[in-house]
Design a protein around this nucleic acid. Structure first.
Length: 333
DNA sequence: ATGATTTGACCTTG
DNA sequence: CAAGGTCAAATCAT
């Protein structure tokens, strides 16, 4: 609302009437369009950068973090601009029933919805698994699953439906996203590497546990770890600890200026290793030392701790004020 | 040969 | 029962 009226005013005049209202609508749409475009380009850039920097430790981590923050900023702006309070009168031409998908399960509500002219360039890899004619819409709806649906049990899906012919402009599409990605390579690869270097065989069970930790963010990881304190297998415990280290590595990067201090303990501190000064914000690979010893969690040496008796949440609180961390935690998807 | 897409059938939901 | 979502065999692209 505020944004809308500000836009209307900056559009010149603000002397009521339908023309001014439609001008503000246009501007509102233009802002959303530009933000969407920026978001898409950021996603593309992120994918390209991560591909180019793969395996380059600090550079990869820094690029992933910065681009994640840029992407998040776009998402926040889009969310603000799309909120009912700020949306213009509902004259947007959406495909008839597209806004009320009937899926009937917990994942029935899209976690994100965008209107875009380039529905396929969002930085993720999708595999089309269906297409359906939708009543009262001249355009079919296409169904996509994350390409890592099988390999990493990623449940992310999206639906794409053209909603307008463009009239000389590129056609517009409504894209609805369901379920969070839990396969992001930026998180998965360091986590898998950490697990592997701590001696965890990445069998199917371990993969699924690792995936569970990565996919659920800090809150989820906390709950999971509390549940899993009874695990008996050494390699399972190692896996859990290294997975948590991965999640925390990302978390720490995510709250940079929040506390105004960067004195947070470096997750990259190794256990009695030759000190190549660790990258200040390096991610997880360094959370486990090369010799495969137990990692440190944000400066807490867990090597000598019995994970089964160790409340990891307490470790979190020692290193961080838990409240400083966002609830939805996981920064990579 | 392998992986992605297409498309009709089947399933689920309201 | 109709509409939408998913599956899986057939087809296509590389």
């Amino acid at each position: 609302m505020q944004t809308q009226s500000r836009l209307a005013m900056s559009g010149g005049g603000g002397s009521g009437g339908s023309s001014s209202s439609s001008a503000s609508e246009d501007e509102h749409e233009a802002v959303i369009r530009e933000l969407t475009r920026g978001h898409e380009l950021t996603a593309q850039l992120r994918a390209e950068a991560l591909r180019a920097l793969r395996g380059q430790g600090q550079a990869e981590a820094t690029a992933a973090f910065i681009l994640q923050e840029v992407s998040r900023a776009f998402t926040v702006c889009l969310s603000i601009m799309s909120s009912p309070a700020r949306a213009p009168p509902p004259t947007m031409e959406m495909p008839a029933p597209a806004l009320a998908p009937r899926r009937g399960r917990d994942d029935s509500i899209p976690r994100e919805q965008r209107r875009t002219s380039s529905p396929h360039s969002d930085g993720y890899q999708w595999r089309k698994y269906g297409q359906k004619r939708i009543t009262k819409s001249p355009f079919p709806r296409c169904y996509y699953k994350c390409s890592f649906h099988r390999e990493r049990s990623c449940r992310a899906t999206k639906q794409v439906q053209q909603c307008s012919d463009g009239d000389g402009h590129p056609p517009q599409y409504v894209v609805m996203y369901f379920n969070e990605h839990t396969c992001d390579t930026a998180a998965w690869e360091p986590a898998a590497a950490a697990a592997a270097s701590s001696g965890v065989p990445l069998d199917d069970l371990s993969r699924s546990r690792l995936q569970a930790v990565l996919g659920q963010g800090q809150q989820g990881a906390r709950a999971l770890l509390l549940d899993e304190r009874g695990v008996q297998e050494e390699h399972e415990r190692r896996l859990l600890v290294s997975s948590l280290a991965c999640v925390l590595g990302g978390q720490q990067q995510q709250s940079p200026a929040g506390s105004g201090t960067t004195t947070a303990v470096d997750p990259a501190v190794n256990v009695g290793q030759e000190q190549e000064p660790p990258p200040p914000r390096a991610r997880t690979p360094a959370a486990v030392d090369a010799a495969g010893e137990m990692p440190r969690i944000i400066g807490v040496d867990v090597a000598g701790l019995d994970v089964m008796d160790y409340d990891v949440t307490d470790a979190l609180c020692l290193a961080h004020s838990y409240d400083d961390l966002p609830d939805d935690g996981f920064p990579f998807c």
